[in-house]
Each structure stands twice: as structure tokens, then as C-alpha cells.
Design a protein around this nucleic acid. Structure first.
Lengths: 202, 202
DNA sequence: GACATTAATTAACTTTTGTTAATTCAGCCT
DNA sequence: AGGCTGAATTAACAAAAGTTAATTAATGTC
């Protein structure tokens, strides 16, 4: 289960009765991951939906040359799925790995969605999470078309400082669409001219 | 209204009765845009949802230096909204402009959503369009973290050749996160070594 | 058809990134 | 403490992208 303050937040925010929220949780089972543990491996076809109670999950793709590219990070209070499995019915091209000790609530995607569809009160919650995810992806697309790598890094630092801290730089680099070497150079540039930082942050 | 084949497709795909689909259309009114016409201007606060019957809409942002960056293209059979207005209740940072003669079906976002929520049969359709949009944004994020500009251009050419054709290169360039000058160079490189093209397309 | 306007290309130059490899740094283990 | 491991930094060079401006091509207008 969730902590009491989160439970109350969801009850209030989505206007649910306690029994309704409980019936949702009854569909999910808890899963504990150690730091570094793989949750979904590339090639997997399990259509699970997971809610992150605590921790940090990294979604990455293994390229032909053996290098990893981090595509997505998900953290506490967010949902995630192996999205090409669930949306396109394909084997997952990505691997999902815990970056920290992580606790998930896991349910079958189809079962969960059908359950949500049966009760219209859940539909608001479903929309909320879908739209949150969509908004986040739009913001990311924006950051790619509007900002250069240095500006993207500064924005990420500003918007999600604790996520940057919890994740090695090499993963942050590929998340930003650049190489770890390049990120290191950007960090050096910024350290040498802190004026530039505040100017760009405005 | 829509053409008959599209109507039939939606009736079938979402398992709706003709009256149900009609009741949806009754919420919307048609709007015709000339080529180049502005549909939503930066700073607008109108929370409309639009379905594109035909045509092509460009969503762009005007930067401080006066340059336009194209953030998003939407075309026939897709929905779109001034998303920062609807999702975050802000004045739109973006302008939405018709690239071609365009016909929209337009409805008030809040009214439309409340209507959809009243009938669970519409919920499948709502999810479908939300998830389609999400999937498209995820694919775009992927293309930014996994591909370089040349590869992004080749992929766009491959996946959406007719959209590339219908839109001036300078808008395609900023959509890919690069400058028009750079896109022109990429096109030249590809023209000079067509072998590279087929290799990269594999 | 000549002119005006805008898009696309080319050129010249600067800045940044990618690549590969070497070096330094930091955490961890026994 | 010493040594191992992987992350981060640095270096050196090649390749690509940004910037500004000039040139060419394409399109529409009178």
C-alpha cells in the first residue's frame, strides 16, 4: 500500500471513496528491486503497468555498437510501462533498470485498463496520468527543438535537480541527446563562467 | 461532417452507433482556414479542441531574435489543441498556422471532454487519440536521443514523406532541431552519396 | 515578361560535438 | 592501506552544426 498522506491525496484529488482506491490496489502486487536490478529486459513481451512507490527507473536501449542510450527516466509517484509492448504489441526494444532500491506496484496492463473503464470515476485518474505523461514528452520535444545541449542541461538541472543528482552523468548525457564527453565539457564551460549560467537561467 | 468512409471507420473502430457519433459532431462547428492563415495566435487563451478534416497545421514559437521554431505539425484525421492553454491553463506560447487550405471541426475542450466522460463508449476513442499522440511524442523523443540530424531527416522522409513534401524545408529543419542551412547541407551530402542513403535507411 | 519576394543553396568562418584514447578521480572491497 | 573498477575528465583531432552574408532558384504579382 501507499503511505497515508499519498492515499489521502489521491482520494481527494480524484474524488474517490477509500473502497474504490482499495479495489484498484487489489489488482496490483508489490515488487521490490535492488539497485542495478533489471525489471524488464529487451525482448520482453510482458504487458505490465507499474506505479513507482519509491525509487528511480531508467529505460535504455542497447545500440549495435554496444553502447547504451538512456531514453527515459521514471521516478516515485509516476506510472510506466514497457510502452512498445503495451501500445504496439511488440517485444520491448528497451530495458528497464532500477537505478536505486525501488518499490513498484505492478499490475497487468489490460486487466487494469479494463477495470478503470468499468468505473467512470477512475477515468479522471486515467486521463490525468496519460495527460501528465503527454505533457512531459511535449516538454522534452520542445527542449530538443528550442534549446542547444548546454541549455537543455541547464533546464534539466533547474527543473529536476534531484533527478540529475540521483543519476550518473553518463546517463544524463544520453538522455539529453549528447555524449558523456560532451556533457563533461559543458559542465566545465559552465564552471569556468558562472555568469553564463545565471544569464541562461533567466 | 466527415466523408462517409471515415464515418464508417470510426463507427466500426470505436463500436459506436451512428447517433452517438452524430451527437459528438453536434458539439463541433466547422472552420475553414486559408493557406497561411493563423488559427491560434501566441498569447491566446481559447481552450479549443480541433479535429483536422483536411489540411496541415504548423505549431511554432517565435523566439526573442525573431526567428520561428516549428515545434509540431498536425494533419488530417488528427486532433490538436493549444496544449499549454488546455493542459496548464496558460496563454499559448505558440502560434498555430495553416500551411494549406485547411478544414477543422472545432469544439470547446472542456465541454467536449465532459461529454466524452458521460458516455463510457467514448472513453475508448478518447484513450485512442491520447495514446496515439503520446506514442508519437515518444517516437520523436527517441529520434532525438538515438539519431543524429541526418538520420532524423532520413527517418522523417521514410515515415512521413508526404508531410515533408507538403512543408517548406525551413520548417522541417527546425522541427528536426537544426537550422535550415544545416538541412540544406545534409540534403547535399545525401544527394552526392546515394549509397549512404540506402545504407542508413536499412 | 519584368519585378519583387521568399526559399534554398552556397560560401567562409567559428563553435560545438563526436570519437578515441589516455589520465585522473572516487567509491568499494578484502 | 593498497588495489580494483568504473565514472568523469582531459586531450587531440575529425566531422558536423551554427552564424552571417552572398548568391541562386522559385513563386507570385502587376
Amino acid at each position: 500500500m501507499l503511505e497515508e498522506n499519498k492515499v489521502n491525496h489521491y482520494l481527494d484529488f480524484f474524488d474517490l471513496a477509500p473502497e474504490e482506491l482499495m479495489s484498484l490496489f487489489s489488482l496490483a502486487k508489490e515488487k521490490v528491486l535492488k539497485e542495478g536490478e533489471i525489471y524488464v529486459k529487451e525482448g520482453s513481451t510482458t504487458g505490465k503497468l507499474a506505479y513507482i512507490k519509491s525509487g528511480l527507473i531508467r529505460c535504455f536501449l542497447l545500440k549495435e555498437n554496444g553502447e547504451e542510450t538512456t531514453v527515459l527516466l521514471r521516478w516515485e509517484d509516476q506510472f510506466f510501462t514497457a510502452y512498445d509492448t503495451v501500445l504496439f504489441n511488440q517485444a520491448s526494444r528497451f530495458t528497464y533498470q532500477a537505478m536505486e532500491p525501488t518499490v513498484l506496484l505492478e499490475a497487468d496492463y489490460q486487466v487494469f485498463m479494463e477495470f478503470l473503464n468499468k468505473n467512470s470515476k477512475f477515468s479522471k485518474a486515467k486521463d490525468y496520468f496519460l495527460i501528465s505523461m503527454l505533457a512531459e514528452m511535449m516538454e522534452r520535444v520542445e527542449s530538443f527543438v528550442l534549446l542547444n545541449p548546454e541549455e537543455r542541461y541547464l533546464r534539466l538541472l533547474k527543473d529536476k535537480p534531484n533527478i540529475v543528482q540521483r543519476c550518473p552523468d553518463k546517463y544524463i548525457a544520453t538522455l539529453l541527446g549528447i555524449t558523456p564527453v560532451s556533457l563533461s565539457r559543458i559542465r566545465k564551460r559552465l564552471a569556468n563562467s558562472p555568469i553564463a549560467v545565471s544569464k541562461k537561467m533567466k
